[in-house]
Computed example of a mutant assay.
Amino acid sequence: MKYFWTSAQRWHNTLSGEGIAGQYIQEICTVQTKFPYYLCSYCADAKIAIEIAQQLITQGKEIKTLIFIDVIWDQSSKQLQNRLNYLRHNLLEFGPSYLS
Rank of each mutant, 00 (worst) to 15 (best):
H12F: 07
A44I: 04
F35Q: 10
K47L: 02
C29K: 15
E27F: 00
L91D: 01
P96R: 15
Q55A: 07
G17E: 14
G19W: 00
I67N: 13
S16H: 05
Q81E: 14
I50G: 05
S100D: 14
V71D: 10
S77A: 12
G19T: 04
Q75P: 00
N13A: 13
Y38D: 14
L80S: 06
M1W: 07
F94Y: 12
D70V: 01
E18A: 11
Y98F: 06
W73P: 06
W5D: 13
V71Q: 11
I72K: 07
L91Y: 12
I67H: 14
Q59A: 14
I69T: 10
L91A: 08
H89R: 11
Q54R: 13
G17M: 11
S76M: 02
I57C: 07
H12G: 00
H89F: 14
W11L: 15
K61I: 05
D45A: 11
W73C: 07
S76Q: 01
Y37N: 01
E62F: 03
E27P: 00
K47S: 08
Q81Y: 08
T14L: 05
Y98A: 09
N13V: 08
S97M: 06
N85E: 13
A44N: 04
I63T: 03
E93F: 04
S76C: 04
P36N: 05
I57G: 02
W73E: 15
S77E: 14
K47Y: 04
K78P: 00
D70P: 00
L84I: 12
S100T: 12
W5T: 14
I48H: 08
L39H: 01
T6K: 13
R83N: 10
I63F: 02
L92I: 06
K78C: 01
I28P: 00
L80Y: 09
V71S: 06
G17R: 11
H89C: 07
Y98E: 13
I69P: 00
L56A: 05
P36W: 02
F35E: 13
D45W: 03
P36T: 05
F68I: 01
V31A: 12
T6R: 12
I63P: 01
L15F: 11
